[in-house]
Structures are given as structure tokens and as C-alpha cells.
Amino acid sequence: MSQSKKWKTSITRRDKSVRVKTARGRKLSSTRWLQRQLNDPYVQEANRKGYRSRAAFKIIEIDDRFQFLKPGQKVVDLGCAPGGWTQVAAERIEAEKNPDGHVIGIDLQEVEDIPGATLLVGDFMENDAPDRLKEVIGGSVDIVLSDMAAAASGHPQTDHLRITGLVEAAFYFAIEILKPNGWFVAKVLAGGTDNDLLNTMKKSFTTVRHAKPPASRKDSSETYVIASGFRGKNAYSDE
């Protein structure tokens, strides 16, 4: 197996852990979450490098393995807040120094400016969203990214349906704006995507894979679908 097919990460844990005392008014679960954050090497490295979330390392590790982000590309990041994936995409396509490179982040809430990226406030699920996006970016795009997750309900079946719905919406948005041979990378839950959606993806892309990067916590059920070689917007309707 070539190096490009292996997970690569340089993040290591600190020797000493930080213990958080339970403060008055703070729930034990909140204290445990805070302690995990303070001792998370990805959180520490994100703070050191100026990334807005530890999730930045998920896209770094996925791209290190599959190598889809390249200088001069046009990239869309759906549900981009707080902006970690958008930051990495802008860096890797060299958006600030390559005139062909362009990253657009879309979210329902405002996101603080990111060098080399255009940030839009809006709902990508609106009917005219693909056309408006192509007007902003000047045509079709090379890559659509989605690290979106629905708010957890505590009910596994409900959570699976919610995130599958988001992935499906992101997929149908992607096939409206992707160039031929484009990529679609999105968060799903363990077990992958719904079978019908997965079969549709396989009609639309030459290769569809699932992967869980090291930055994804071991106790998390999240994984990622990586679809490459987009066949064209009408391929999904073929029998």
C-alpha cells in the first residue's frame, strides 16, 4: 500500500493531563466534556495552529490519504461553521495566491472571515441555491465538502435518519454543481449511508468509499463517505 493510502498524523498526546474540578452549577457531564477538551491533543494543536475546531484535522487526514485538494480548485463547504474545514481547504488550494482557486463556505449562521474564502449566509437546500452558488463561484466546482451533523437526540435511529437526510440533501446539491470527475466528501454515521442513497452515489461516481480518520474520536459513530470521479449530473437517474 502506498503512503498516500495510509492514515498520516503527527498529533500526539501530552504527557500530563489536566484535571477539571466540578464547579458550582456545572453538571458532571459538562465537567467531563471540558476535561476531555482540555486534554484532547487535536484541540491543543488546533489552538496552536489557529484552526477554529479540531475537525480541521479530520479533513487534513482525509485529504492526506485521498489527495483531492489541489491548488487552483473550486471548493464548496456546506454547513461550514465554525470554519475549520474551510480554513484547510483555502490553505490547500492556495486560494490567496492562486487566482483560479476559490473556496465558498455556506452556513445558516454568520462565520467570521477566513482568508482566501467567500462565506455565504443561507440555506443550501433552497431550490435556487445551486444556481446562486454557481453565479458566485463562476461555474461548476471540483469538490463539495460536508461535515454537517444534526443535533443529537439521544435516540440512535432518529439520529441516523437525521444525518442521512443531511447527507442526501448535500449529495443532491453536489450533483447540481460538480464538474465531471469531481469529489464529494461528507460525514455519515457508522454503517455508512442509506442503501438506496449509496446505490445512487455509486451510479453518479466511479468510486465510493468510507473512511474514519484518526482525528475522529474512537467513541464517535461518525465516519466519512468519499466519492470520486463524478460522472455528470444526470448519471443518478440512469437505470
Results as ranks from 00 to 15, higher is better:
S2P: 12
Q3H: 03
S4F: 10
K5H: 09
K6D: 05
K6F: 01
K8M: 11
R14I: 00
D15N: 13
D15E: 14
K16L: 10
S17A: 04
V18G: 01
V20E: 09
A23W: 11
R24I: 05
R24E: 13
G25H: 11
S30L: 08
N39L: 11
N39M: 09
D40I: 01
D40E: 08
Y42L: 06
E45F: 02
A46Q: 01
A46T: 00
R48Q: 14
K49F: 13
K49W: 14
G50T: 02
R52H: 11
R52C: 07
R52D: 12
A56Y: 05
D63K: 04
R65W: 03
R65D: 02
R65Y: 04
Q67Y: 07
L69D: 00
V76D: 09
L78T: 07
G79Q: 08
C80W: 04
A81H: 03
P82T: 02
G84K: 00
W85F: 08
W85I: 02
W85T: 03
T86V: 10
A89R: 03
A90P: 06
R92E: 14
E94C: 09
E94Q: 15
P99K: 05
D100P: 00
D100L: 06
G101H: 02
G101C: 01
I104S: 11
I104V: 15
G105S: 03
G105H: 06
L108W: 13
E112H: 07
E112T: 12
E112M: 09
D113Q: 07
D113M: 06
D113V: 04
D113F: 06
P115D: 12
P115Q: 03
P115V: 04
A117R: 02
A117K: 01
A117D: 07
T118E: 14
L119M: 03
V121W: 08
D123E: 12
N127E: 15
P130N: 12
R132L: 13
L133I: 14
K134S: 05
E135M: 06
E135P: 00
V136C: 04
G138K: 12
V141A: 03
D142S: 04
D142T: 01
M148Y: 09
A149I: 08
A151R: 14
Q157W: 06
Q157C: 00
T158P: 00
D159Y: 08
H160T: 09
H160R: 14
L161Y: 11
I163G: 00
T164W: 14
V167G: 14
A169K: 12
F171Q: 00
F171G: 01
F173I: 06
F173M: 10
A174S: 10
I177N: 11
L178T: 09
L178V: 10
N181T: 10
N181W: 05
F184H: 01
F184S: 00
A186N: 10
A186R: 03
V188I: 10
A190W: 11
D194A: 14
D196I: 12
D196C: 00
L198A: 02
N199A: 15
T200R: 09
T200E: 11
K202G: 00
F205Q: 03
R209Y: 03
H210T: 13
P213W: 09
P213F: 09
P214M: 04
S216F: 06
S221H: 13
V225M: 11
F230M: 02
F230A: 01
R231C: 05
R231D: 01
G232I: 09
K233I: 04
